[in-house]
């Protein structure tokens, strides 16, 4: 392992380098999801027939998943809180808890999609469902990626290393949560 360059430790803006980078990551993600969701909204408003397609989604699955993600966000922020107080072990525990939330989210999604696909609502069924699977799928990939990174960070945090990273993954996770907060009404509620 190479050591960190001096450049990384400087902070002319007053924001630590890693955190600054995460904010830029969040910014670039906003435009990725923004572009996709803007495209979806345009189509949804321009196609009255999509209302009927959309009525087949199950808001209970969406609601449960929103609950799960909101709770995992709480767990992520508690991990940050613990890390701030130098308690790496506790931070790691909360992070693993957050990951567990991500796992439940993916499992619920798997059950939900299986039922939908069995009913014939596949990605090629029509315009609504292709956006539904693309947007939710892109989001689910972010959840999975976040879980993997979180486990790595939790492993370090457990040994008391790189505790500042707990906050960074937290910011990313909250962003993923916010994306879902918007996906939920767009895909499940507005009918």
């Amino acid at each position: 392992m190479s050591t960190r360059p001096i450049a990384t430790t400087r902070s002319a803006t007053g924001i630590p380098t890693g955190k600054l980078a995460v904010w830029w990551v969040v910014g670039s993600e906003i435009v990725i999801f923004g572009g996709l969701l803007a495209s979806y909204v345009m189509h949804r408003l321009g196609h009255p027939e999509w209302a009927e397609y959309a009525s087949h989604t199950n808001p209970w699955f969406g609601g449960i998943n929103t609950f799960v993600l909101l709770t995992s966000s709480l767990s992520a922020v508690l991990a940050h809180h613990a890390a701030e107080h130098g308690d790496g072990k506790k931070a790691a525990k909360w992070l693993v808890g957050t990951c567990f939330g991500g796992l439940i989210f993916i499992c619920v999604k798997a059950v939900e999609w299986t039922i939908e696909i069995q009913h014939g609502y596949t990605i090629t069924a029509n315009g609504f469902w292709q956006f539904y699977y693309t947007a939710a799928g892109l989001h689910a990939m972010h959840v999975i990626a976040g879980c993997v990174i979180m486990l790595i960070i939790a492993n370090d945090a457990r040994k008391g290393l790189e505790l500042h990273r707990v906050e960074l993954i937290g910011i990313y996770w909250h962003f993923v949560d916010i994306v879902w907060i918007f996906l939920f009404p767009l895909l499940y509620i507005a009918k």
């Binding site: 830029w24 910014g27 670039s28 993600e29 906003i30 435009v31 990725i32 999801f33 923004g34 572009g35 996709l36 803007a38 495209s39 693309t134 892109l138």
Partner: peptide, 12 residues
């Protein structure tokens, strides 16, 4: 960074 997002979505 600010402009490429929609095209990444479009590429998908």
């Amino acid at each position: 960074m600010a402009s490429v997002g929609p095209l990444i979505a479009g590429a998908v």
